[in-house]
Structures are given as structure tokens and as C-alpha cells.
Design a protein around this nucleic acid. Structure first.
Lengths: 365, 365
DNA sequence: TTGAAAGCGCTAACAT
DNA sequence: ATGTTAGCGCTTTCAA
């Protein structure tokens, strides 16, 4: 038999020790201890040593509640995302902002959303400047347009304003933190899902569909991962064709329909979230149930087609939780001086007909 | 074109209003306002009305930091789980307890784990009593043994101690909150994963493996879901056999091996988490790569077999996060008087060879 | 460079 | 039934 596990030693908490206690032990005032704890300077080397030697003895855990209450300051953070009206994906994100806003209101933190579009007077850069007027203490940004974003970051760095990025990473901008997914791996996963159970020839279409797809280098990561999966793991004959489509082109729908009608096609992988349902609709209209369709995110439309079986798998990018997490990191930094991870890659969640409801009701997603 | 979205009105926060403000507006003292806010009684109907009418005018959001700081009280919560040494699953849970413990230490909350085994002097009931000696303010319990658990709950109800359950639900015990998964749906999902891409005859084994499997009615839920999926959705011939195995039986391994060697078998669904790797090992030893194996949870062993391809899918029950969430609910209740959901069903996460790493590195899981 | 003291918003004990 | 007040642990200002 085994011995019974005891409560681990380090969990045994005695009465927690306060700044006042440290001050007494070190023979200095509370003010001095505070100065040492936060490296505020103006401390004699001798006092510093006295305090530090006490600090080394004991395991001081500051009371975070008291800390932020004592600071007696209301923080503001601005959140910058693309205009939600254009896309159900950003609508999701926006609802996350609202949720986070309610949550942090209790801690005296105000969250202000700002929305940008590609250019004109609502460009990221202009909106960023506008948001700066509110004198925020930090920013949370989804920087989907690369060149504009760079200007904004250098501006923020000048001002010394901390910012966290989500959705799209721009590593050279050195944000406080980035929240997103590993896109290459996401493509690999899509490949695996596409191939499950298939043992004969496959004809696959990869569709990159969007407004100005040409700039979206990051979608290529997904495609690379997808192709890599097939190269490494699949041994029967496979043909993979990738196509960029602009939703604003006149023949967009017609082109799509022609592709779907092609009897050879066995699977379609759509690299973005909103257009999946369009493809699903066309598949349904043409009764092409043989096609395995894989796409992104549980947008309302997508959920319906998934439940009906016209979409086989969705990979969830968790837009809502990404922004909530981003805001949470920013606030933890501001309010509690907590360390936040510089990159947080979300899990690649596989959504099918039979677990989609469990995601919807769970609330934590 | 569309109009640009503005920051929603209700997010516009002006300087937040305090109890002191309400008191002034209502023409009463802070104490009275506090009494009204918390229904502490001892308030004249006239004062009550004055305060309430002010409360109706304004949107009072209490400062939670100040509230719990002002209460100046350190909460203790006990967590009761099966002995972790017996099972990697509970080891996971235990690491969740340690994580939660570190997190809440900052808020002056102490988390004390206690471990029980099926019976003897370490039974749930006895351990529960022992944990009561520490005078906890709440309990978080994984009640895997039904009859013993009932006694504990009635004891806790007598004492008026709040408790939240996770992992296994006992609805009639009326806990503050339950965290777990929909087991029937979990079985359905397993069925779907088992059937993907299959178009010819399937011979499937459902294996319920454990220490005292006979009592575990809840595993039947998974089986029911699994069978239901096949009945409703699959039209080619299928044979499903379910078997209960006790790991302590002498011929346990031998029996298992005989089953795996059966050339007809196309798939195996193991309804618990630890034994999956044992089955995977036997499949590997007998080179039965044709068998699709589905089981539960990302235990270290399971992860390896998943990566090597001997396990096809794992459904993640998220043991670690379940307990963290349970503790979080308990603390939110105690510390902030926050409303906690009476049931929280976790999403049914599908883990494959190509997203397992994304789950491991993500940290939030 | 230091210590003393006044908050932060809320709770709870104590007079009245 | 009501008002007053002394904390909670930390930050920050101000005087020494």
C-alpha cells in the first residue's frame, strides 16, 4: 500500500506578514520598506541592507487588494479593434470587450473600445490618436493592418504607454504581451482533420477569402501547415490547390459555385472565419455532401452549418476569449504589477457537430 | 457604407460613486447604507425607502477590493479529492489545487487540500471530519463515492457550510455549484470521432476499466451517448460490445490482450482516463494499428501514445481547470458575494496528435 | 534620507 | 434604529 499524502508543507499558511511587520523587524519605518520593495530610491545603503536581510528571511506576499486600493487611482485602458459591423468575427471580439468591461468595473478599471477601418479618417492610426485623448494607462490592440500599425507602436513607445497585442502578432513591435494561436500548427491540424479516415485519392481546395487578402501573409502560415501535414503523413495521391478570392469581386459567388460543382473535389479548407458559411451554403445548394468542409470559428452562421453537417470541423480561434485575456493581462500589469507572459498561444480547439453545444453553454469560452 | 460604431453608452464611466455618496444623498449614515445593501436588518422602513430610492436613481458598483479588504478576514477553504498517488488523473487535479492556492494567497485566502481513499480511516467521511477541524469557510469536493458522500453533505448542511462539487455531480445534495461535463454528450462525441470516415462494417469495444467499476453508474452515461450516436447517425453494420474490467483482477492484462488481438475489432472506446495508455500499449505491442482508440484526458502517458498515433483521440475533461474553477467559485462566493452558476458544464475538448501541444503550452488549461 | 500620517472604499464594533 | 469610528494593508504626501 501507499502512504497517505499530506497537505504539502508550503501550503501551510500562517498569519500573513505585513509591511508593518517587516518595518518592525528591520527597525525602520513602513515608508522605507515600501521604498525598498519598489526600488523607489532615496534609501540609505544601511537601511536598504536592514530591510533586505529581513526580506530574505521571510516570504513576503503583498496583499494585492490593499495595494491597488491604496494606490487610489482609476485606470483606463483603450481597446482598438476593426469595426465590428463589418464582420461577425469582430462582433464576437466586441462582446468580449463588453464582458471584460463589466468585470473590471468592480476594480475601478475602465475599458474603452475604439473601432477602426482600413483607411481614411477611421484608420488605425487616426483612431489610435483619438483614443489617446482619453489618456489611457494602457492599450490592447488587434493590429490587422501591418504598415499602419507600425506607426502606432512607435508612437506608443515614445509615450511609454504599455500595450498588448492579440489576434495578429507583430513581434518586432515588442508588445508587453501577445495573445493568439500558432497558425502553422493550426494548418497542420486542419490537414489532419481533413485526412481522417480517407484512404483513396483526395482533391482539396484551400480558399483564402477576404476583403484585401493580398496583404494577409499570415494566412499563408495556415496553408503551409496544411500542406506540410499532407506531405509528411499522407501516402495516397492528393492534389491541393489554393486560391485567393476577394469578396468584393463581381464574380466572387459564381467562381465559388463553379469550384464547388467540380465533382472531383473531396474537401475544402477555408482559412478565415466569416466566409465558411458562404461556402457551406453553396455546398448545400448543390447537394455536394461528399465534400468535407473545414473552417474557423463558431460564428452563429457557422454553428448552424456545423450542426446540419454541411461543415465538418471548425477550428476555434476563441476571438472573445483572446480579447478578454488581453485586457486581463493589461490590467494585471497596471493594477497588480503582475508578471504577464510575453506570448500566450491559445489551444487549437476542434469543434464538431457533437461538441459545439458544450462550447456554447460553457460560458468560459 | 456603414456608420462607424461608437463606444457604447453604458461603458462611459464617470467617477465612481461610493457608499459615502449614497449616504449623503439619502440623508442617512454610511452604516445605514451598508445595512441596506446587505439586508442586515435593523433599518427603519423610512430610512430603507430613502436609501432605496437613491439606489434606484444611480448605478452603484461596490468596490470589491475595498469590500474584501474591509472585511479584514482571512478565508479558508478545504478541498477534498481522492488520494492523488493512486491515479495520474487526481495528480492533475492536485496540481490545479496548488496553482489555485498560489493565486488566492494574494487575496488572503488559504486553500487546504485533503485526500481520501475508498474506505478505512481515510474514507471521505473521516477525512471530511478531519478537514472540519481547520474550521474552513467553505469546501470544494470531488465526491466519487456516492453513499459516503451523502453523509458528508448532510453534515455540511447542518453546519451551514457552503460547498461546491466538481467532477462527479450529486444533484440531490444541492451544492452551491457543480463543475463538470455532460457525460452523455461526451459519449456522443466519442461516437462521432469513432465513426469519422468509416463506411464499412465496424466492430467496436467499449471498455469500462477501474478499481471498483461496478458502482460507477456515471460511466454508463458515456456508453449510452456513444450507442445513441451510432443508432442515430450510422447506417452501415456496426457491432458494439461493452465490457467492465477490474484492474485488480489477476487476468486483467491477459483478457485485455485477447480482446485487442481479435482481428475483427476496428475501434476501442475507453471510458476512463488512466487505463487508456494500458490499452494503447497492448495495441502497440500487437501492432494493431488498424484499431482506432479513443479515451479521456491528457495524462502524460496518454499524451505520448497520442503523439505516436496509438491513440486517435482524447476527450479532455480538464481535471485541473475543473478544480481551479471550483475553488474560484467558492472564493468568489465567500470573498465577493458574487453570484456563481449552479452548474457549469465544461466544453468537450477534442485532442488529437496535432493540437495536443497547443493545449499543453497554453497554460490556461 | 527618513518617519509619520492621511487616505483608498468598505466593514463591523460600539455608542447612542 | 442610527451614526460614528477604528480598522484592513498599502501608497503617497509632507514635514523633519
Amino acid at each position: 500500500m501507499y502512504e497517505n499524502s499530506k497537505t504539502p508543507k508550503f501550503l501551510m499558511t500562517t498569519k500573513s506578514i505585513r509591511i508593518k511587520d517587516i518595518a518592525k523587524l528591520a527597525g525602520v519605518s513602513e515608508g522605507t520598506v515600501d521604498r525598498v520593495l519598489h526600488n523607489r530610491g532615496n534609501v540609505s545603503i544601511i537601511a536598504l541592507n536592514k530591510v533586505n536581510s529581513v526580506l530574505n528571511e521571510i516570504h513576503y506576499k503583498p496583499n494585492l487588494l490593499a495595494r491597488s486600493l491604496g494606490r487610489a487611482r482609476n485606470f483606463k485602458v483603450s481597446v482598438l479593434i476593426p469595426e465590428p459591423k463589418t464582420d461577425a468575427y469582430w462582433e464576437e471580439v466586441n462582446s468580449g470587450i463588453i464582458q471584460a468591461s463589466a468585470e473590471w468595473e468592480n476594480y475601478g478599471v475602465t475599458i474603452d473600445p475604439f473601432y477602426y477601418v482600413h483607411d481614411g479618417e477611421l484608420s488605425l492610426e487616426l483612431i489610435a490618436n483619438r483614443s489617446l485623448n482619453a489618456k489611457p494607462d494602457g492599450m490592447v490592440i488587434a493590429p490587422i493592418f501591418y504598415p499602419q500599425a507600425l506607426h502606432v507602436f512607435s508612437r506608443l513607445q515614445e509615450l511609454g504607454l504599455p500595450y498588448v497585442l492579440f489576434n495578429t502578432n507583430i513581434p518586432e513591435s515588442k508588445p508587453l504581451s501577445f495573445i493568439g494561436q500558432d497558425l502553422f500548427q493550426s494548418g497542420m491540424l486542419a490537414g489532419q482533420l481533413m485526412s481522417i479516415g480517407n484512404i483513396t485519392r483526395e482533391d482539396i481546395l484551400i480558399l483564402h477569402i477576404g476583403e484585401s487578402i493580398k496583404d494577409s501573409v499570415y494566412l499563408m502560415e495556415k496553408e503551409k501547415g496544411f500542406r506540410e501535414f499532407y506531405e509528411k503523413n499522407v501516402h495516397h495521391p492528393v492534389s491541393i490547390t489554393s486560391i485567393n478570392l476577394d469578396v468584393n469581386e463581381s464574380l466572387f459567388k459564381q467562381n465559388l459555385e463553379d469550384m464547388v460543382k467540380d465533382k472531383k473535389i473531396t474537401g475544402i479548407f477555408v482559412s478565415t472565419s466569416k466566409p465558411v458559411s458562404t461556402v457551406a451554403q453553396i455546398i448545400q445548394e448543390n447537394s455536394r455532401q461528399g465534400i468535407r468542409l473545414i473552417g474557423y470559428d463558431m460564428l452563429p452562421e457557422n454553428k448552424n452549418y456545423l450542426k446540419n453537417g454541411w461543415i465538418s470541423f471548425l477550428i476555434n480561434q476563441n476571438p472573445k476569449r483572446q480579447v478578454i485575456q488581453g485586457i486581463s493581462h493589461m490590467v494585471n500589469h497596471l493594477l497588480f504589477n503582475k508578471h504577464v507572459p510575453c506570448t500566450e498561444l491559445f489551444p487549437l480547439e476542434v469543434i464538431t457537430q457533437h461538441n459545439v453545444d458544450s462550447y456554447i453553454t460553457s460560458g468560459i469560452h
